[in-house]
Nucleic acid binder design. Structure first.
Length: 814
RNA sequence: GCCUCGGUGGUGAAAUUGGUAGACACGCCAGACUCAAAAUCUGGUGAGCUUGCUCGUGUCGGUUCGAGUCCGACCCGAGGUACCA
């Protein structure tokens, strides 16, 4: 047969579409697999990263379908977000139109790849029906206290005109546009992810061995749990008076309570209320006040990189154990958002405190270890620490915390680096936050029956300010509670909110989509996602938020799932000339053109053959050609097939080459289970099939050819589906595709076994040994074969590895 | 700095988890076909030399009959994180 990819790919795609071949069954009884590749942002065109992502997911989905699983393999669109608004500004296109046109185009591109998606479950996250349920979740979260509105210092990107979540700041810059992030005081909506920090951390253990270690470690570090002591510094009487009695004390957190006798000063963040009060009330020189204000207004990045700087605030606090008066400073390295924005400073045992104390000539008092260089942050015995002197510092930690708790001065405390998730964005193209501001009632959530609060279509997008805010009528409404005039919230939700629950939406039968957001029974059947596939760049952002949302929606009663993604595969990037493919570098390969030239099967085969999915993939045009030739060879060899079913073969009667060919075929089959279910090393399975085809070519038994093609097409169907369906249809009426194949053990039975003879650890000879030979017989043969190397040697040890090799350890005789 | 993952021919990569290093493919070389080229097919292809031996999986050491694989120290690369008290 000749191979015409364009013709057969169009033919089968049409058949799959009209037969709705890949829709899962509604029955919730059958064994199931939920295979999900991360949904795309509809940016306009697909790129090779998408092709790789969906080729991997599709191969796994098709494999399980062949194993008679009920398979859910959906696709959708992560459709809200900034590029749509930027396009609107640039090309005067409405974000909605831009987005849906892109979806239309990309859907066509993806369908050319022959992906086995369940299209009845497809949706875009900007569909009002999706927004409706999301807004309901947000309101329930508000009612349960998990969502709150407050005014704090936020990360602000001036170029995107919006607030960023902590996770969206990369090295002090905006994750989208790379502009330096400013700190700004603003009201916003927050999700209390810290409340779930401990569960998010401990449940990482469930994922061990199923998620890449790298991702688990990144999440662990991001959550950043640390245990220590929280206590209060009381201001001296004089200082209280100086602050007009407005402040009595403040809280500090330390992971080193064992060093508390070494405290020589305390430092507050420039944003700390006491610092602010002092600056605003002229309690320090105006020059110093200016400097402090300057620090507070610096961009986060700049501040982190600048030298340690601080100013004495002219107040003191009382050491809770010694009663000493300790000076209070403000310092640029104290973070407002962590541990109360204040620290006790122990310069002898903390590098930062030491650097600061050295610069400003503050006293340094050693309390751990007898001698050696300072600062010393290691383990040791306490000195000059009253009753705790002489204790090992680890023991002292526990005792000092216990003592504080007993005396009521403080308590053991767990802190997290993780910050609460700021979900409001000052942008148009997102899901509106369903709240109104009422003069009478304050912040009020919209009534559930009024959802969705939909975006107005008639907006002018200029890039200046939030179009919802400047819309003439949209924000004016009546209060859902008292009916008075009120103002609608004009902030929209972070787009990561949509991608935090889409996996549950797919799992919900679309027949119920109008009535319900997430169906509990459907979720119990389909969730968690058995295999999730996506880029490592989502290791923290999306994967942490989605895990969090899953737990929150569980606690709100929507379902009973603890973790959304049972197994995770992070695919490597697609490179060309050693660099990531990008338009700006001009090293892209256009998937459409590739498919036009070689067909989708070649594209899929190359991508899965060139490297294991977890690794980076270097593009190679010649190797693409090679992939095409392999498929063409399969078509050419179809003529060798003489039976239209799996033949029964008398193995013993075959010639040597035919026996070897059968062995290669079944080696490939044996390998396939591991590849499709565990390692995803498709490259090795494809190589095994190539070996099998090479071996088949060296013999001409028609039955062996028939069996070989029957099995190989079954194994390759998930990778090159169009070619496999076409050949299987013609040769076997597709019976081989629905068959769950079994390995035939007789092909691995041999008349003789090859043993490698090693002498002194070096390979010296090979011997053919009968399968039932004893160790003694094998050794005798080995010694004979290796006699040349045994002359004037004496054997000190004889090792026989059954079925493999003989190793004779030797030393010179005499 | 800290954490994680890597380092194997000219290239992409294999190696049943401690058992013949380099499967499979790309490239290259030679041959066949051709007036010629392309395409196709066949064979070869880790390095070195004295042509059957030596060396060879980032470097150095260790364990073992046997190490790409395990242990220790180091070098290099990629990613993450960065004043979290």
């Amino acid at each position: 047969m000749s191979y015409n990819p364009n013709e057969i790919e169009a033919k089968w795609q049409k058949i799959w579409e009209s037969e709705k071949a890949f829709e899962p069954s509604d029955s919730l009884e059958q064994k199931k697999k939920y295979i999900l590749s991360m949904f795309p942002y509809p940016s306009g065109r697909i790129h090779m990263g998408h092709v790789r992502n969906y080729a991997i997911g599709d191969a796994i989905a098709r494999y399980y379908r062949k194993q008679n699983y009920n398979v859910l393999h959906p696709i959708g669109w992560d459709a809200f977000g900034m590029p749509a608004e930027n396009a609107a500004i640039k090309h005067k296109l409405h974000p909605k139109k831009w987005t849906y046109e892109n979806i239309e185009y990309m859907r066509k591109e993806l369908s050319a790849l022959g992906l086995s998606f369940s299209h009845t479950r497809e949706f875009a996250t900007c569909d009002p029906l999706y927004t409706k349920w999301e807004q309901e979740f947000i309101i329930k979260m508000y009612e349960s206290g998990l969502l709150f509105r407050e005014s704090t210092t936020v990360n602000w990107c001036e170029s995107c005109h919006t607030v960023l979540a902590n996770e969206q700041v990369e090295e002090g810059c905006c994750w989208r546009c790379d502009n330096p992030v400013q700190l700004k005081e603003m009201p916003g909506y927050y999700l209390d992810i810290i409340k779930y920090a401990d569960e998010l951390l401990t449940d990482l253990k469930i994922l061990e061995g199923k998620w890449p270690q790298q991702v688990l470690t990144m999440q662990e570090n991001w959550i950043g749990k640390s245990e220590g002591l929280e206590f209060e510094f009381e201001l001296s009487e004089e200082s209280k008076a100086k602050l007009h009695g407005r402040f009595e004390k403040y809280t500090v957190f330390t992971t080193r309570p064992d060093t508390i006798y070494g405290v020589t000063y305390s430092a507050l963040a420039p944003e700390h209320p006491i610092t602010k009060y002092i600056v605003e009330h002229g309690l320090v020189e105006s020059k110093i006040a200016q400097k402090i204000t300057h620090i507070a207004n610096m961009a986060e990045r700049e501040r982190a990189q600048s030298e340690k700087e601080g100013h004495a605030l002219g107040i003191t606090v009382i050491h809770p154990l010694t009663g000493e008066e300790i000076p209070v400073w403000t310092a640029n390295f104290v973070l407002a958002s962590y541990g109360g924005g204040a620290v006790m400073a122990v310069p002898a045992h903390d590098e930062r405190d030491y650097e600061f104390a050295s610069k400003y000539n503050l006293p340094i008092k050693r309390v751990v270890g007898a001698e050696g260089e300072l600062p010393f942050t290691g383990e040791g015995k306490l000195v000059d620490s009253a009753v705790f002197s002489g204790l090992n510092n680890q023991q002292a930690k526990a005792k000092i915390i216990a003592m504080f708790e007993e005396a009521g001065f403080g308590k053991g405390k767990v802190n997290y680096k993780l910050r609460n998730w700021g979900v409001s964005r000052q942008r148009y193209w997102g899901a509106p936050i369903p709240f109104v501001h009422c003069q009478q009632c304050g912040l009020v959530s919209e009534k559930i029956e009024n959802l969705p609060v939909a975006l107005p279509d008639d907006v002018e997008i200029t890039g200046e300010g939030n179009p919802l805010d400047s819309h003439p009528t949209w924000k004016y409404c009546s209060c859902p509670k008292c009916g008075q005039e009120a103002i609608r919230e004009t902030d929209t939700l972070d787009t990561f909110v949509q991608s935090s629950w889409y996996q549950f939406r797919y799992a919900t039968n679309p027949k119920k989509w109008n009535e319900i957001g997430i169906d509990k029974e459907d979720a119990a059947y389909w969730m968690g996602v058995d295999q999730y596939i996506g880029g490592i760049e989502h290791a923290i952002l999306h994967l942490l938020y989605a895990r969090f949302f899953t737990k929150v929606l569980r606690d709100l009663g929507y379902h009973d799932i603890n973790e959304p993604f049972t197994r995770l595969l992070t695919q490597g990037m697609v490179l060309k000339d050693g660099a990531k493919m990008s338009k700006s570098k001009g090293n892209t390969v256009d998937p459409d053109k590739l498919i036009e030239k070689y067909g989708a099967d070649t594209a899929r085969l190359f991508i899965l053959f060139a490297a294991p999915p977890q690794k980076e993939l270097e593009w190679n045009d010649n190797a693409v050609e090679g992939a095409f030739k392999f498929i063409r060879r399969l078509f050419e060899r179809a003529d060798r097939v003489v039976r239209n079913e799996l033949p029964n073969i008398d193995h013993e009667a075959l010639g040597k080459e035919s026996k070897l060919a059968r062995q290669k075929v079944y080696e490939a089959l044996q390998k396939s289970k591991d590849v499709y279910e565990k390692t995803f090393a498709f490259n090795t399975l494809i190589a095994a099939c190539m070996e099998a085809l090479n071996a088949l070519d060296k013999q001409d038994d028609g039955a062996v050819w028939s069996e070989g093609m029957y099995v190989m097409l079954n194994l390759l169907e998930p990778i090159i589906p169009h070619a496999a369906w076409e050949l299987s249809e013609v040769l076997f009426g597709r019976a081989n595709l629905s068959d769950v194949l079994k390995v035939k053990d007789e092909v691995f039975v041999h008349d003789s076994i090859l043993y490698v003879v090693m002498i002194g650890g070096k390979k010296r000879a090979e011997i053919e040994v009968s399968p039932d030979a004893s160790s003694e017989e094998i050794l005798a043969l080995a010694k004979e074969a290796g006699s040349k190397w045994l002359e004037s040697m004496s054997i000190i040890k004889e090792v026989v590895v059954p079925g493999k090799l003989v190793n004779l350890a030797v030393k010179p005789a005499g």
